[in-house]
Simulated scan of single mutants.
Amino acid sequence: MSSLVVAIDGPSGSGKSSTSRGVAARLGLRYLDTGAMFRAMTWWMLSHDVDLGDPDAIAARAGEPLIESGTDPLDPTITVDGQDASVAIRSDEVNAAVSPVSAVPAVRARLLDLQREIIAAGEGIVVEGRDIGSVVAPDAPVKLYLSADPEARAMRRAAEAGGDVAATQESLLARDRIDSGRATAPLTMADGAVHIDTTPYTLDEVISQVVALVEATVHEADA
C-alpha cells in the first residue's frame, strides 16, 4: 500500500467523496479531494473580482493563489493563501462558478501540477475527481468510476447542503453537461476503470466493494 494510487472519478452526488474518504481511512492511505482545489481556485477568483466570463482573465491569474490541501481522510483541509477555505468553497456562489473556471486550460494545468506533487510526496493515496484516472494519474493500478441515478444524486446532495431536490437535480445535470463537454480533461470514465453504480447501495457497501477491489489488486501484484 505504501505507493498505491487509487483513482476515483465520477459526477457530483455519485458518492465519490464519502467513498474516497472511507476507503482511505480503512486502508490507512492519504486522501486528496481535487474538486476542492478547483473550488478553492474559483473562490479566490471571486474574491479578487476576476471576470469569470473571460477565460483569458482567469488564465492570467491562475498562477497567483497558494492552494494547500491536507490529506488526512478524517480531517481533510483546504487553505488559500494561508486562510481556511473549507466552508467558503461550498457556497452557492462557488457552486455556480466552478465549472467555467475549471474549464480554463491554464487552471487545469496549474492544479494538475499541484495534484501530481501531492500524489508523489508521500505514501499511498486515494484521489477523487473527474479526470484522475484519465489525466492526473492514468497509471494508477486501481481506477474506479462511480455513478448514480440523477434523482438519487440530487437527493444526496440536497440532504447534504439543503435545498429543493428538483432544482438540485437540474443544477447537477447542467454541471454534468459542462464537465463532460469541456475540451480539456472532460469528465469521463478512464480506460480500465471499474464502474460502480452506487444507486442501490449504502455508503458502507460501496466502501467495502472498493476496499475489496484494492486489496485484490495489491494481492495480485504481490503474488
Rank of each mutant, 00 (worst) to 15 (best):
M1E: 15
L4H: 08
V5T: 07
I8K: 05
I8D: 04
G10W: 02
G13P: 00
K16S: 08
K16R: 13
T19V: 14
T19E: 02
T19G: 04
S20A: 15
S20C: 10
R21K: 15
A25D: 14
R26F: 05
L29I: 09
R30M: 08
R30L: 09
A36Q: 06
F38T: 01
F38E: 01
A40D: 06
M41S: 00
T42G: 06
T42R: 07
W44C: 07
W44A: 07
L46A: 13
L46T: 12
L46C: 10
H48Y: 02
D54F: 07
D54T: 08
P55V: 03
D56L: 12
D56Y: 09
A57G: 06
I58V: 13
R61H: 13
A62N: 10
P65L: 01
P65M: 00
G70H: 04
G70W: 04
D72L: 00
V80R: 06
Q83A: 15
D84C: 04
A88Y: 02
V98E: 07
S99R: 09
P100S: 03
S102L: 09
A103G: 05
V104D: 01
A106Y: 05
R108Y: 10
R110S: 12
L114E: 13
R116L: 06
A121G: 12
G122T: 14
V126H: 01
D131N: 05
D131Y: 06
I132F: 05
I132V: 13
G133H: 02
V136D: 01
D139A: 15
R153L: 10
R153S: 10
M155S: 14
R156A: 10
R156H: 11
R157K: 09
A158F: 00
A158T: 01
A159N: 12
E160N: 08
D164E: 12
A166T: 15
Q169L: 11
Q169M: 14
D176Y: 03
R177Q: 13
S180T: 15
S180Q: 15
R182P: 09
R182E: 11
P186Q: 05
L187N: 09
L187V: 06
A193S: 15
A193F: 11
I196R: 00
T199D: 06
E205Y: 04
E205V: 02
Q209L: 13
A212C: 11
V214H: 09
V214R: 08
T217D: 14
V218D: 02
D222E: 15
